[in-house]
Design a protein around this nucleic acid. Sequence first.
DNA 1: AACACATGCAACCGCATCTGC
DNA 2: GGCAGATGCGGTTGCATGTGT
Length: 253
Amino acid sequence: MGRQPCCDKVGLKRGQWTIEEDHKLTNFILNNGIICWRKVPKLAGLLRCGKSCRLRWINYLRPGLKRGSFTDSEEHQIIQLHSRLGNRWSKIASHFPGRTDNEIKNHWNTRIKKKLKQLGLDSQKPFEIEKSRKNYGNKNNMNSDSSSSNKQEAISLESRPEDDHGMKICPKKAERPEEMKATVDETNDPLNNYQMLSGSSDLDWLKESNNVSMGETACVEEEYWVDGVDSFLSWDSFVHVEDKFFPSWEIGN
DNA sequence: AACACATGCAACCGCATCTGC
DNA sequence: GGCAGATGCGGTTGCATGTGT
């Protein structure tokens, strides 16, 4: 016995949204807020399922969305976050006000993944870059106990006063498949390669962090992380803006 | 100009998780 | 605690557009 479909799909429209549909959905939400996505299409006069409406709103119609290509800085931050979080796109997206998880996921799959592949890095091993980064920064410290350093990192991250959504930044060690452990070919510097491919010179933050010891690495990471997030508008401030538009609902994903 | 192929993005699908009863 | 409905999430697909021949 299969799962019940999220909605009765008979007679529902699919595919690309028309401008008229966008207007209907936008007007409805602006006037009424979001109470129940299931009811939205019916109340808004749309022949779509609630899921589809939600997706359209979140990914395209929601005010404050930043459209256009990703900047180098954003791309670097995506790579860094992905190295910590893996394919948890919504978590990654929460660090980019105005960007959607879908957008970031698409960007990763179409651009970044390709670049990493060219570098010989396996994008399916999301912690590889982070690990590479650590290894390159710790050539003088190769004997250090990796498990304890992992633990140290986990503690460091978990004791973080909490990010804007109270999420855990670093997957627990047990959640990391063994295969994710990095195997770094020290004859190649992936960061150099990435820089060459991207034609960007602002990977310096990665290189700079390679010059510190293990203990310092954690500190640098922490600082970078905080600076990186703070350098963007916080999601909370974005929520406040939306509160003015939509006092009747909350974005509390 | 016409066609084939590649690319990027919007949208869909189905499972996971949350929430209220 | 168990269940059902609603929502969230990530993987995947399909199509529009761009590019090369």
